Amino acid sequence: MEKAALLNAIVYNAIDGIITTDDFGTVESINPTACVLFGYSEQEVLGNNIALLIPSLDWPSRDYFSSRYKTTVDSPFIEKARELKGRTKEGYQFPFKLGVSEVHYAGRKIYAGFIHDLSQQKADEERLKNYASHLEELVELRTKTLNDTIKALEKSKEKVSATLEKEKTLSKLKNRFLSMASHEFRTPLSTAQLSASLIEKYAEPLENANITKHAGKIINAVTNLTTVLNDFLYIEQLEIGRVKTNITYFDLKKLGEEITEEMQLLAKGQQQIHFTHNGTQKLMHLDANLLKNSIINLITNAIKYSNDTSRIEFTTEINDTNCIITVKDEGIGIPQEDQNHLFEPFFRAHNTGNIPGTGLGLNIVARYIALMNGCISYSSIVNEGTQFTLTFSMK
């Protein structure tokens, strides 16, 4: 009795559906799980043919089992599980796996069917199938997009290569032209400047103001044009990498005095260039030529953009940590909105008006200072003046 009760409890609480029939497929028992799966009550199923629940099943008859399933005379029949479709009371079909066992009980044969619902499994498989299909489509689309991108990049690469070749050719032509122009124009300009100076000298006994005036205009025009050509030549040399630093020891104070003397001759009207060297240390380890050109450029700007009676402060200092060089003027200053572009080539502040210039000077200075591992900074107020500071580390 206990065993029977235990078996009954196992069948009653099984997670799979269990149905028993006789030889002719008449349902003799059905557990609660099978009732839930098919949507029938136990009373609605008992005594009915199994075809009520599984229409597609050719439920085994006595001859069917003996001819098709039984492997030996002595062994009980166990049908290999197969997938079928069940039909619920509402008429819906669902997939399940059916395994059938032949049971000998009380001198008769009973067939027990074990039903494992496959609805969730099939739904998961379908979802995975759809996802796999989606991934395949996505991979195909991405592959096509990638191939299209590669083709576009190849075309762009060809265009860029062609453009670069054109740029290289144009750059070579430009550099050749600048080099040729700078050198070819320099000789006639030097001749014109020398001739204008001689005219001034020869005109002194005549005391003719007009001759002196016009000779001065010629000299100024030649000086400005020479400055322009020099700027182009310096830029050309920087672009092609010809500018190399020649680091040597030199007397910074002496260099400052020489520059001041030279630039004072070019000052306008009553302008005064005041040079000061701070500290006892004088020797500096830099490229004297590049530094001199940079300082001359800054002082030239101070002269150009200041009035005829202004004072230009030029100071040098060497201490234990830095070499500091400043050029300060009382000129027109640099507008705040223009300051971010100050070192760009060919840029000129919008308040420079008709004052001649190429917009290359500060770009050249910044690049020279960078070649010597220094830095350039500035401060400026419109109509009050500008100060440029060159700083080099002594470490």
Rank of each mutant, 00 (worst) to 15 (best):
residue 111 Y to G: 02
residue 93 Q to K: 09
residue 106 A to F: 11
residue 111 Y to A: 06
residue 140 E to R: 10
residue 98 L to Q: 03
residue 114 F to A: 09
residue 135 L to Y: 10
residue 102 E to G: 15
residue 133 S to T: 14
residue 115 I to F: 09
residue 131 Y to E: 15
residue 126 E to A: 14
residue 107 G to V: 07
residue 111 Y to S: 05
residue 114 F to T: 06
residue 115 I to K: 01
residue 120 Q to N: 10
residue 141 L to I: 07
residue 107 G to L: 11
residue 134 H to N: 10
residue 122 K to T: 03
residue 93 Q to W: 08
residue 97 K to R: 12
residue 135 L to V: 06
residue 132 A to G: 12
residue 136 E to V: 00
residue 129 K to N: 09
residue 128 L to V: 02
residue 92 Y to I: 00
residue 100 V to K: 04
residue 102 E to I: 11
residue 133 S to F: 14
residue 135 L to C: 08
residue 104 H to Y: 12
residue 105 Y to S: 09
residue 115 I to C: 07
residue 125 E to G: 02
residue 128 L to C: 01
residue 105 Y to P: 00
residue 118 L to Y: 05
residue 112 A to V: 15
residue 121 Q to H: 06
residue 133 S to K: 14
residue 139 V to L: 14
residue 133 S to C: 12
residue 136 E to P: 00
residue 127 R to D: 07
residue 106 A to I: 08
residue 101 S to E: 07
residue 138 L to R: 14
residue 132 A to T: 15
residue 115 I to R: 03
residue 117 D to F: 02
residue 119 S to A: 10
residue 106 A to Q: 14
residue 113 G to F: 01
residue 135 L to E: 13
residue 117 D to I: 06
residue 110 I to G: 00
residue 97 K to M: 07
residue 134 H to S: 11
residue 99 G to K: 08
residue 93 Q to M: 08
residue 110 I to C: 03
residue 139 V to P: 00
residue 125 E to M: 10
residue 116 H to D: 05
residue 130 N to K: 13
residue 99 G to M: 05
residue 128 L to W: 02
residue 100 V to P: 11
residue 120 Q to T: 12
residue 102 E to N: 10
residue 115 I to N: 02
residue 128 L to Y: 08
residue 110 I to V: 11
residue 101 S to C: 11
residue 103 V to H: 01
residue 97 K to T: 01
residue 141 L to N: 12
residue 114 F to H: 07
residue 137 E to I: 04
residue 117 D to K: 03
residue 96 F to V: 03
residue 123 A to K: 08
residue 117 D to V: 04
residue 132 A to L: 15
residue 114 F to V: 13
residue 141 L to H: 13
residue 99 G to L: 05
residue 99 G to F: 00
residue 93 Q to S: 13
residue 109 K to N: 15
residue 96 F to T: 04
residue 101 S to Y: 03
residue 113 G to E: 05
residue 127 R to Q: 11
residue 118 L to K: 07
residue 93 Q to R: 10
residue 126 E to R: 09
residue 113 G to Q: 03
